[in-house]
Amino acid sequence: MNIKFTINNKPVSIDIEDENTPLLWVVRDILDLKGTKFGCGKAACGACTLHVDDVAVRSCSYAVKFAKDKNVTTIEGLGDVENPHPVQQAWIEEVVPQCGYCQPGFMMATAALLKENPNPTDEDIDKNIINICRCATYYRMRKAIHRAAELTQESKN
């Protein structure tokens, strides 16, 4: 069957036999955007987090059919070197990544949180950012999330 949606602001049309195929594999293997990661396949780690209509979604457990006619954003569409998203800018300033594998998922989760809650408290962060980072870069992540909130405010002023 054919499913249309937009990915990073570009319309795409996918022919796929099984509409229940997880969006993750469509993004990675058909659209060749490798920034969204596979970690567990059970929505337990958050490495595959991307946005569907600005909402954070764990794409390993989200059938591609649900993305129909929606806007999907991945880390590649969040920002780029010339024009980084405030979350990416904060991640660079705080030198957050170690191995880096889980980081796109965390950045996507953070960007979605800031959209909903531009100035999250520590408690808001604790409650909402529940992905897993095995390098345990959490200490710098908390600082980077607050910094990203600041940068977002600055860019609005």
């Binding site: 955007l33 490798k34 920034g35 969204t36 780029d80 660079i92 990544p97 880096g100």
Partner: peptide
Amino acid sequence: VARIDLKAKVFGDPIFGMD
């Protein structure tokens, strides 16, 4: 010095075995 792999890791470059 900032990690030399920092940008690749912040912008989601395909640098891992899985990629």
